[in-house]
Design a protein around this nucleic acid. Structure first.
Length: 272
DNA sequence: CCGGACGCCTGTCGGC
DNA sequence: TGCCGACAGGCGTCCG
């Protein structure tokens, strides 16, 4: 599912439809997502006004005058803005009906997504308070990665996908960034030097920014707020390309499994 | 503390 | 055509 570029695309897409809107009511069709949808939303949300829509990691934060709605898209989730009367499909589990006559609709076949509510400061929320820095923020750099990796005896790809180290980098973009940086995904994190981490940090930023520009990557489920897919799939360097030639050196892309996740790399460009 | 496996769900695809 | 296992963009929890 959605990694940072897809969530960012969603955030930018829904924000103008939500900000300043008064919420009529939530519609909970399937309360059993990753965690139960809080039943009290039925009483709390009507009448609330959306004050901002932001993203932290892969969480969407819909701030209101009385608290914050936290949405996560899991593996297969997407959000659309539709006329409120649009009849729901099988996997349309949650709506936020707005005064504008439109609704924000969560579709999520696998139901790994989440709809949560908090009135506490976000930095204290258990899902948010241990997250690493944003990869597109000022804190993230080669220096940072180098420092964060010194005691980590894991594969560098595993480090990159650890949300306590840096958020938003999932399986697709970890594979892509390592290829762009010419680093083998199995190299041990603590044995990689600073200059390589400089390259890696730059590659992460480049890949994520290019993916956001393309509206994200659609493999199957993901769509933007208008229902259109993301177009970054056409620019993927290694992900899903096992056996196909590397665009840089023509060697066939290799596939292995790391912590159960498909790991693609070029044996020519990314030496162990 | 650290690393790795598991489980939550449904849909799709390839092999037989 | 049907069945069955493997696999899919995430991530908290548990266990050694």
């Amino acid at each position: 599912m959605p990694e940072l570029p897809e969530v960012e695309t969603t955030c930018r897409g829904i924000a103008p439809h939500l900000i300043g809107q008064r919420i009529i009511k939530p519609v909970v069709r399937h309360p059993r997502l990753r965690w139960p949808v809080p039943p009290e939303l039925i009483n709390i949300l009507p009448g609330r006004v959306v004050t901002s829509v932001t993203r932290r990691s892969k969480y969407l934060l819909i701030d209101t005058d009385r608290g914050t709605l936290i949405l996560h898209l899991g593996m297969s989730g997407s959000l659309r803005v539709l006329p409120s009367h649009t009849s729901p499909g099988k996997h349309d589990h949650f709506d936020l009906a707005l005064e504008s006559g439109q609704c924000l609709r969560l579709t999520d076949p696998r139901r790994f997504g989440a709809v949560l509510w908090t009135t506490d400061p976000l930095e204290t929320h258990p899902l948010l308070n241990r997250l690493g820095p944003e990869p597109l923020g000022a804190e993230f750099s080669g220096d940072y990665l180098h420092a964060a990796s010194r005691s980590r005896k894991v594969a560098v790809k595993t480090l990159l996908m650890d949300s306590h180290v840096v958020v938003g980098v999932g399986n697709i973009y970890a594979n892509e960034a390592l290829h762009l940086a010419h680093i083998h995904p199995l190299r041990l994190a603590h044995r990689i030097g600073k200059s390589h981490y400089d390259q890696l940090a730059k590659a992460v930023v480049t890949v994520l920014e290019q993916a956001i520009t393309a509206g994200g990557t659609t493999l199957r489920d993901f769509s933007g707020v208008d229902g259109r897919p993301g177009y970054f799939k056409q620019q993927l360097r290694v992900y899903g390309r096992a056996g196909q030639p590397c665009h840089d050196c023509s060697a066939p892309i290799s596939l292995l499994r790391l912590s159960g996740r498909a790991t693609y790399f070029c044996p020519g460009c990314q030496r162990q």
